[in-house]
Computed example of a mutant assay.
Amino acid sequence: MATGEGSLTKQDFERLSHFRYQLRRFLRASEDICNEHGLTSLQYQLLLHLKGFEGREWATVGELAERLQAKHHGTVMLVDRCEQLGLVERRPGRRDRRRIEVHLLEKGARQAELIAEHHQPELRHLQEEFRLPGWPELP
């Protein structure tokens, strides 16, 4: 890739355009899958981040906001909505009771698994499209 101001080539723009197209294609398919299962894309992403949080099965609102690249107050509202739907619950922290942990409930875990399963064809397509190094082969 070219570096420096004004030194991008036509090929650089083509590559970036292709990447953005494939990314948007994936996101659109994801939105459709989520809607078919009665969740918004953000609700699914919250469940996904809880299910996939490294080393534990819960996260704080701050950690979720970072993963979602969202504002703290927006993430609080998202957790509220998911809690109302019976997908997650807040619990006092084990070590610091002032710290609130967001835990995935069974219903939320089932939804996350079902929706993630439906994402596999799109992930396979992206893997083939970009031949991402270091990514394991998908079944």
Score class of each variant (00 low, 15 high):
residue 24 R to F: 07
residue 25 R to T: 08
residue 25 R to H: 08
residue 27 L to T: 07
residue 28 R to P: 00
residue 29 A to P: 06
residue 29 A to S: 14
residue 30 S to C: 09
residue 31 E to S: 07
residue 31 E to H: 09
residue 33 I to P: 05
residue 33 I to Y: 05
residue 34 C to Y: 04
residue 35 N to V: 00
residue 36 E to G: 04
residue 37 H to S: 07
residue 37 H to L: 08
residue 37 H to Q: 08
residue 40 T to K: 00
residue 40 T to I: 03
residue 40 T to F: 00
residue 41 S to E: 15
residue 41 S to C: 09
residue 42 L to D: 07
residue 42 L to V: 08
residue 42 L to M: 13
residue 44 Y to S: 05
residue 44 Y to N: 02
residue 45 Q to S: 15
residue 45 Q to K: 15
residue 45 Q to C: 10
residue 46 L to C: 03
residue 46 L to D: 01
residue 47 L to N: 02
residue 47 L to W: 03
residue 47 L to K: 01
residue 47 L to Y: 05
residue 47 L to H: 02
residue 47 L to C: 06
residue 49 H to N: 08
residue 49 H to P: 04
residue 49 H to G: 04
residue 50 L to W: 01
residue 51 K to Y: 07
residue 51 K to F: 09
residue 52 G to C: 10
residue 53 F to I: 06
residue 54 E to P: 06
residue 54 E to G: 05
residue 57 E to G: 14
residue 58 W to A: 10
residue 59 A to P: 01
residue 59 A to D: 00
residue 60 T to F: 04
residue 61 V to C: 06
residue 63 E to H: 03
residue 64 L to V: 03
residue 64 L to T: 01
residue 64 L to G: 01
residue 66 E to S: 11
residue 66 E to D: 14
residue 66 E to K: 14
residue 67 R to Q: 14
residue 67 R to W: 11
residue 67 R to S: 12
residue 68 L to F: 01
residue 72 H to C: 13
residue 72 H to T: 14
residue 73 H to G: 13
residue 75 T to H: 00
residue 76 V to P: 03
residue 77 M to H: 15
residue 77 M to L: 15
residue 80 D to E: 14
residue 81 R to L: 10
residue 83 E to V: 05
residue 85 L to T: 10
residue 86 G to E: 05
residue 87 L to D: 02
residue 87 L to M: 12
residue 87 L to F: 10
residue 87 L to W: 04
residue 90 R to M: 06
residue 91 R to C: 07
residue 92 P to G: 07
residue 93 G to E: 06
residue 93 G to Q: 06
residue 97 R to I: 12
residue 97 R to K: 13
residue 97 R to T: 13
residue 98 R to H: 11
residue 99 R to S: 13
residue 100 I to W: 11
residue 100 I to H: 12
residue 102 V to Q: 01
residue 102 V to G: 00
residue 103 H to K: 12
residue 104 L to V: 01
residue 104 L to E: 00
residue 105 L to K: 11
residue 105 L to D: 03
residue 105 L to R: 10
residue 105 L to G: 02
residue 106 E to I: 11
residue 106 E to D: 14
residue 106 E to V: 12
residue 107 K to Q: 14
residue 108 G to H: 04
